[in-house]
Nucleic acid binder design. Structure first.
Lengths: 342, 342
DNA sequence: ATGAAAGCGCTAACAT
DNA sequence: ATGTTAGCGCTTTCAT
């Protein structure tokens, strides 16, 4: 009878085989839930595994079998809570499916994306989740050519073959605009996100379409360029406030940018929302932490992570199954940073 | 002459060996920068690698050699920016050293920590970084027994053998108290963090020691229990505001908790800082996003990540080198959420 | 249903 | 300095 693992030696299937008195390929079958195992032997093996504290060696598994049960996650940054929320969803699904998560961070340096992708593809991950990339076309081509499984989160590329999970960015922006226009606002300032991302362009499109539909002019001076980051919100807001006739509300392309807008508005001694309404996009956790709490368009971030992960795993398990991209709906959340304009 | 990789077949060292006309152990030597390779051959191999686009198979490497060049990161949660900042530091160091990062998230469910650790130890990571764990003693014992390399971030356990990177929690809290007392505050409310963490107990200790040193009484009604999360800040603040003589300032055990305090204070119609000063701890990115910006004790989060990673890698490269735990200093950052009490 | 055996791609110990 | 070879722990194919 073997001894429980004393922590000094790794238990392999060979140890289990000895302990259970079977061949080690039998153990492999049990571990992988394959058929052709007599229930009684299966039981013996299972008990031996429990007794000795067997944990499979993933590297050996993937070397031999070609799967690693690891999926990679390529993100820009983890400091805003946006990615964190998505990861919560990913994680939930991954744990349920017994996958591990490899994290690759680019920290906004574009060249690093390519480097990462190269090593990922060859490396330890069976598939890849990509959150809000900037111009991913270059390396996504590599992935496509190699037929490497990946899912894009919050990015809608040109290629309709790609698996993507996005939220309804344009409709979301439209919703916000609808609310603002019906609240009496006529001059609505907008600060764009990175226009290299589909989230950026679509939110801008929602802004423009809404104006058009309501018969309002599109005034280019009311549209300031930005990059989804806080400083761009601050600067964009400053320019809007410098206009001869400033807008009565500023719609930022995401929440983080909206925080920059809040700062700029306050620095001018204006009150929110009495003097200036502010609207964001995303509904990250901070949106309720700031004061006044931010009116914003809620993206179902956790769901996006979860759905994307499920898609990827399905693709992994059956490469031939036909899968569709998913668009999740957004929701207007009215808080105290916005009000009527009379 | 071989062809550049067309994406259909993985290039192995055997392909490189053929291409360069050497044995494949020669290739391994070049890849691993070992000695006993004639410069001219090294050059030939390097060129063949570039030509064919060779990327090493990590799994095979670690199976054969015992190292995976992956380090694991065990965290609770990624939604507050706190962890994100630390990861930025980890990442910086890791990339420089050619390591990959495996992410394990517990989402505050304690049982998951143990599960993760078991598979990590056996699994794909050479070492483990652990951020702010709750009562890690159980599974840390497993790690110690196995002599598995790990570094604790923001947790100071009992065992002085462990490698840890913390900031000066007690001194930080003391600094804040000093500032508050010298600003005229006499009744200072405190909301504790999880007292199962050293960060929690040390910050409380700093509070108490400061009071004692300044000859102020320790009033138990001014100390509310909390858990580092926002709701506990809200609730703690409510209790403090309900006192017959409420404090003039509330010192929260971290920034997130302080946001909850802000909320509660506002809900009573009190102004910050005129009616109530608020101080946090950590200086996460959100501390400047809220209004008024939060006075807090800054932890060098990115540095903590970087230092911890460096420690771990040193330990990995030379298991016998003697390494010391590191305490990084904190800094008081005075913003607009706190003021004089006259 | 079960066992034996051939790799997976690589490192490292051993020859030469 | 270079080549040969034996595993690392496992999956999978092929016998039986």
């Amino acid at each position: 009878m073997g001894q429980p693992n004393d922590g000094l030696k790794d238990i392999t299937i060979i140890d289990i085989a000895q302990e259970a008195g079977v061949s080690y390929s039998m153990v492999s079958r049990v571990v992988n839930n394959k058929e052709h195992v007599k229930p009684e032997k299966r039981e013996r093996v299972l008990q031996a595994m429990a007794r000795l504290g067997y944990v499979a060696n993933q590297q050996a598994r993937s070397l031999a079998g070609g799967r690693s049960n690891v999926i990679g996650l390529l993100v820009r940054d983890l400091t805003t809570g946006y990615t964190g929320e998505i990861i919560r969803g990913i994680d939930l699904e991954l744990t349920a499916q017994q996958y591990d998560l490899m994290l690759y961070t680019t920290h906004n340096r574009k060249t690093r994306e390519m480097v990462h992708v190269t090593s990922i593809v060859r490396g330890l991950a069976d598939g890849l989740l990509i959150i809000l990339p900037t111009q991913p076309e270059s390396y996504i081509n590599t992935l496509r050519q190699r037929n490497y499984p990946f899912v894009l989160i919050d990015y809608q590329g040109q290629d309709t073959e790609d698996l993507t999970v996005v939220s309804a960015n344009q409709q979301g922006a439209y919703q916000a605009m609808q609310y603002l226009i019906e609240a009496g606002h006529r001059r609505i300032g907008f600060i764009t996100g990175t226009l290299e991302t589909s989230a950026g362009t679509e939110r801008l499109a929602g802004y423009k379409v809404a104006l058009a539909n309501y018969g309002l002019p599109i005034d280019p001076t009311l549209i300031q360029g930005g990059d989804f980051l806080q400083p761009s919100g601050y600067q964009g807001a400053q320019k809007l406030l410098d206009l001869e006739v400033p807008p009565s509300v500023i719609f930022a392309s995401n929440d983080v940018q909206a925080f920059g807008v809040m700062e700029a508005v306050r620095d001018r001694g204006l009150r929110i929302p009495q003097d200036m309404s502010i609207v964001g996009f995303d509904d990250i956790p901070q949106a309720t932490q700031v004061h006044p709490p931010l009116t914003t368009i809620q993206q179902p971030l956790e769901d996006m992570g979860r759905v994307a992960t499920r898609l990827l795993i399905q693709r992994l398990q059956d490469p031939h199954v036909s899968l569709a991209s998913v668009v999740l709906s957004t929701k207007l959340v009215i808080r105290q940073s916005s009000g009527l304009f009379i």
